[in-house]
C-alpha cells in the first residue's frame, strides 16, 4: 500500500516516551485493598458481622460522598481509581466494630469532603483522609469511638460487653498510679492473632504484617516509612520500659498492640501525604514513631498513631523541601549557583 501523503493521516502527536510500565493509580489502589483483605477478614473473624457492617457502610459512604462532591464541583468521576473505596476500607478499620451507623456516615463525609475533595481531589490533600476522619470522630464523639467490644468471634454471637484495649488499660493504670503487674494484660500470642479489644481493623497484627509484606514485595510501598516508624517506637518504648518496667509497657506489646502495624504499613505510607524522596520517607517514619511514643507514654490519649501521622503529614512539605537528593555530578551542595536574585 502506498504510504500516506502528508496531512491525511491522523497520527497521535505527543512527547516521548511513547511506552509505559502499565502500572496506574487504579492498579496500585487495588493492590493496597488486596493487602488489607487479611486484616479485614481477621477483624470480621473476631468481631463478627458487626465489623462487616462497618466496612460496607464506610466504603459505600465514601464512594457516595465522592460521587456527590465530583458532581457538585463539576469534575470528572474519579471512582474508577478506587481511592475512595480504599479510604472507606481504611476508615472502617480505624473504627470500633460497635460504632453506630451515623458515626460511620459522618466519618466518611469528613474523610472525603474535608480530607480530600475540598483540596481539589486525589494528589492535593495534605492530610491522610481516613485519619482526618478518625481524629475528627475521636475528638467529637469520644464515647462511641472508645466503645471497645471484647472479641467474641463470629461463632459465639456478639455480646456487647466493653473491654479496654491493652494500651487503654495501661494508660488507666498509669493514671491511677497502679503498677502494670496488677492490671490484666493479654499475652503476646493473643496480641499477635488479634484476640484483643481495639478498632476492628487494627487488632490482628499477623494479618496486617502479611498485607504489609505483600505491598513491600510488590514495590507499592517503600521500606523506609514502616521500618523508620516501628523501629523508633521499639527504641523509645524499649528505653522507657528499661528505665521503669512497671510503669511503661514493653516494646513488643507496643508494636503489636494498638494501631501501629496498620498505621506504619497502610496509613503512613499513603503516597499523597508522605514525602517523595527516600530520605524524606525515613525522616517521616522516624518522626511518626517518636510522636507516637511520646503520646503513648506521656500524652493524654492511649493511642498516638493517628495524631503522629497527621502531624508528620503537616511536616511533609518541609521534609520534601529539605531532603532533596544531591543531583548526579553535583559536587558541593551549592554547585548550581542561584540565578541572580531579583
Amino acid at each position: 500500500m502506498t504510504s500516506p501523503g502528508p496531512g491525511d493521516f491522523k497520527f497521535i502527536i505527543s512527547v516521548s516516551p511513547h511506552v509505559h510500565s502499565g502500572q496506574d493509580v487504579r492498579s496500585v489502589m487495588r493492590d493496597v485493598i488486596l493487602a488489607l483483605v487479611p486484616g479485614v477478614l481477621a477483624g470480621i473473624w473476631f468481631f463478627g458481622f458487626d465489623a462487616f457492617r462497618v466496612l460496607v457502610l464506610a466504603v459505600l459512604g465514601c464512594v457516595a460522598f465522592e460521587i456527590g462532591m465530583n458532581r457538585l464541583l463539576g469534575r470528572a468521576s474519579t471512582i474508577r481509581d478506587l481511592s475512595a473505596a480504599l479510604t472507606g476500607v481504611l476508615l472502617a478499620m480505624n473504627l470500633p466494630s460497635g460504632s453506630p451507623w451515623w458515626l460511620i456516615i459522618v466519618g466518611s463525609g469528613v474523610a472525603i469532603i474535608l480530607g480530600k475533595a475540598i483540596y481539589g481531589g486525589l494528589g492535593y490533600n495534605p492530610f491522610n483522609p481516613a485519619l482526618v476522619a478518625r481524629v475528627f470522630l475521636l475528638i467529637s464523639f469520644p464515647v462511641q469511638m472508645t466503645h471497645w467490644v471484647v472479641p467474641a468471634g463470629i461463632t459465639t454471637g456478639l455480646d456487647g460487653i466493653t473491654g479496654a484495649t491493652p494500651l487503654g488499660a495501661a494508660k488507666e493504670a498509669a493514671g491511677l498510679g497502679k503498677s502494670l503487674s496488677e492490671t490484666i494484660l493479654p499475652d503476646t500470642l493473643q496480641l499477635l492473632l488479634g484476640n484483643v479489644g481495639g478498632s476492628f481493623g487494627e487488632v490482628s497484627a499477623l494479618a496486617l504484617l502479611l498485607g504489609g509484606a505483600f505491598l513491600l514485595y510488590r514495590g507499592i510501598i517503600r521500606w523506609q516509612i514502616p521500618v523508620g516508624f516501628i523501629g523508633s517506637v521499639v527504641v523509645i518504648t524499649g528505653i522507657a520500659h528499661l528505665l521503669q518496667p512497671d510503669r511503661y509497657l514493653g516494646p513488643v506489646v507496643h508494636v503489636l498492640a494498638g494501631g501501629l502495624i496498620l498505621g506504619a504499613f497502610f496509613m503512613a505510607t499513603d503516597m499523597v501525604t508522605s514525602p517523595v524522596t527516600r530520605t524524606g520517607m525515613l525522616v517521616f517514619g522516624i518522626g511518626c514513631g517518636v510522636l507516637t511514643s511520646v503520646i503513648r507514654l506521656w500524652g493524654g490519649y492511649p493511642e498516638g498513631v493517628s495524631f503522629a501521622i497527621l502531624l508528620m503529614n503537616a511536616l511533609t512539605p518541609l521534609i520534601d523541601r529539605y531532603t532533596r537528593p544531591r543531583v548526579f555530578g553535583q559536587v558541593s551542595r551549592k554547585l548550581f549557583e542561584e540565578a541572580p536574585s531579583s
Partner: peptide, 19 residues
Amino acid sequence: GAPCIRCGNCVDACPMFLV
C-alpha cells in the same frame, strides 16, 4: 495528565536524582 499522587516512582527512576 491526571494530578500527581506523589508516589515517588519517578524519584526512584530518575538517573540524575532530580524530583
